[in-house]
Design a protein around this nucleic acid. Sequence first.
DNA 1: TTCGTTGCAAATGTTTTGCACCTGA
DNA 2: TCAGGTGCAAAACATTTGCAACGAA
Lengths: 129, 129
Amino acid sequence: MAALKYSRQRESIKEFLAARTDHPTADTVYTNLRKTFPNISLGTVYRNLSLLSDMGEIIKISTGDGADRFDGRTAPHNHFVCRQCHRVIDLNMENIDSIMDVAGKNFAGSIDHYVVNFYGVCGDCITKS
Amino acid sequence: MAALKYSRQRESIKEFLAARTDHPTADTVYTNLRKTFPNISLGTVYRNLSLLSDMGEIIKISTGDGADRFDGRTAPHNHFVCRQCHRVIDLNMENIDSIMDVAGKNFAGSIDHYVVNFYGVCGDCITKS
DNA sequence: TTCGTTGCAAATGTTTTGCACCTGA
DNA sequence: TCAGGTGCAAAACATTTGCAACGAA
């Protein structure tokens, strides 16, 4: 049980994510943090993203389309992935947690979590076409 | 528009997937196909999995937990991922396509698809513990 | 003959890790 | 002081790709 110690880098990563609503990849976090920490390494970014995500202070999003993305907004919500511009957008939708009950009906295991990603074309891309 | 040509390898990959209900990774497909095609290469397996998935004859599953998995069952259904044994299990559940309508309500883009993965501990792992 | 397919190997992209040094408690 | 954190570089994975030879139409 490691006693977590303060680190300016970790704090900065958390702040960085909290301040954006897009969903940056580890590499984007790295590139931006270099402005504050010119010597920070990708390894450190990955280590801290992983730590923060384990602690539930950020969310890791796997879209199945390129690198994982990270979200500083921890309140439960779902994501939309644009197939055209590859952006990941927060959805402001009614709670659908009840799908866990539906899924659990004929299932022997225990379900405690789910991840939904919606796919299609985002508003901006539709306008531009 | 490439005119697809028959290939024993591709046919075999499709048959292999159709015959299993677990959800093998590309590497598992590769290892097993080597029994029939001792010289088949991983590249060929990936190329064909990608082709088949584009044609909708198999489904590619990204769980965010290790390598992608492939499913020969193309009828729409959802998956459960066991956090303990990492198995991916087909769920036999009521249709929940209506969540796309819910998601689309306050959203400017067009949603045509969604992927849900449920997480928890499977029946076998619960029994063993 | 033509053009998609294959095997092989090298390259790519993403993420993890070993290690010596640094730093917060 | 000392366990945890960092930077750096190498390693580990997963997947893609270039190319010459092969095979289906």
